[in-house]
Design a protein around this nucleic acid. Structure first.
Lengths: 230, 230
DNA sequence: ACTGTTGCGATACACCGTATCGGCAGAATA
DNA sequence: TATTCTGCCGATACGGTGTATCGCAACAGT
């Protein structure tokens, strides 16, 4: 035993906090999708044993909730928007952008109520932007309707994105590669309307499609806000 | 070769077929949620070893796709609806009812493109109901916007349902039980608009809320179908 | 009846989330 | 300072998962 081979003193465990744990989990999810997130791998990233995490998180589901809340911090707009329409549009597009940066968000969106501090802050900011424009029920209906739209739209967009990526082809060519089955189905003539869409449909930009649908919904909301129900 | 056109295996010792496998999986999911569905448990229900299933499905994700497609058969309306609005409304409410019967559907809705025969049939019926009312792109936008809405709305409704069930309380009391954390957050005064909603908000029927939002979106679609873009 | 072949499913593997509790570090005491 | 006590951390363990592999039993062909 010399100076040189004296064992390192027991490494004082690096301090851990939820923020670092969540950051590691998000990094893993960004790289390999949600199913690449395991408590063991998260812990390994932090040079810790798996059980170490349970001092900060009580379950894996809770970790997912924290991840979602962390992304909500990215979504929260920094400044007060001009009007309610701009506020809702910003929220929708912000959420979409976040989902494009973190595709796993699409798997979690709408899956559980968002009660984290950042999620609540986003909701607060949204409600504040609509405050006083109509009675409470109408405002809630407006927020929930718009949220439902962009939640569903984002999920579908990401789902299609993954499908296209899996076949490595554009949506227009998707039929030929992804589904010989689908092609055969279409060839049976049992789906004429569908066949027409696949055959004649133009390939539309995903963002434009999202924005258009959003504007429709916002138009509808505007009409109801202007004329609150009797 | 995809999920949908996998050939039936040699019918030699065939006490098993995809239909029975999918039925067993759906039964398990109805009873214990999606996470109660494991290939081993599905196989056990059919008095078979786990590996037996791989002759009929090649992966667990495929089984989920098949389950969703089976439910789409329940959604498919039996008769041609009167007008496009009725068609979309029926589709939305039918999907919602299916999700209330099979809550796990909420976890899968919008998560992957629906290319099964029943899913395609539903899409076909929907497109057929809108055929000729506007140019193809507008029709697609209409269908996708409505689908996005009810997909997101259903997911949120089921998510809230589960949260309420977990605390065993109504939505109005939910704050007190589910979230001492949330209560504390509200008490900080950082979320005045949110606090007002929690405090003054009336408890609304989930179905009515769904229907109202849907009608708003349908109104918006009607406006766009009447005046297709230049 | 014997053999060759095929396809099925028991076994095995890597990995998961998390309950348990032995042992060690720091605190309290003598 | 020496010793006992105490709390808590994390190694180990457990029951489960999805699925690859391949020995063997059962059929087909002669």
């Amino acid at each position: 035993m010399t100076v040189w081979d004296r064992p390192e003193p027991p490494t004082r465990p690096a301090p851990l906090d939820r923020e670092r744990i969540v950051a590691a989990a998000i990094a893993l999810a960004d790289e390999g999708g949600l199913e690449a997130v395991s408590l063991r791998k998260v812990a390994a990233r932090l040079d810790a044993g798996p059980m170490r995490l349970y001092g900060y998180i009580s379950t894996k589901e809770e970790l997912f909730d924290l991840m979602v809340d962390e992304v909500h911090a990215e979504i929260l707009p920094e400044e007060q928007p001009g009007d309610w329409r701009e506020a809702l549009r910003t929220l929708a597009h912000g959420t979409r952008q976040a989902a494009l940066r973190h595709e796993w968000l699409a798997d979690l969106l709408g899956g559980r109520p968002t009660l984290g501090p950042n999620g609540l802050a986003v909701t607060e900011a949204t409600l504040a932007a609509l405050d006083g424009l109509a009675d409470l029920d109408t405002v809630m209906r407006a927020v929930e309707t718009v949220s439902a739209y962009f939640t569903g739209a984002i999920r579908r967009e990401i789902a299609n994105l993954r499908a296209e990526r899996a076949t490595g082809l554009s949506k227009h060519d998707w039929q030929r590669a992804s589904g010989p089955h689908v092609m055969r189905m279409l060839a049976t003539g049992r789906f004429p309307a569908l066949a027409k869409v696949v055959h004649d449909g133009t390939e539309v930009d995903a963002e434009a499609s999202f924005a258009t649908g959003l504007d429709w919904v916002l138009d509808a909301v505007a009409a109801k806000l202007a004329r609150p129900p009797a």
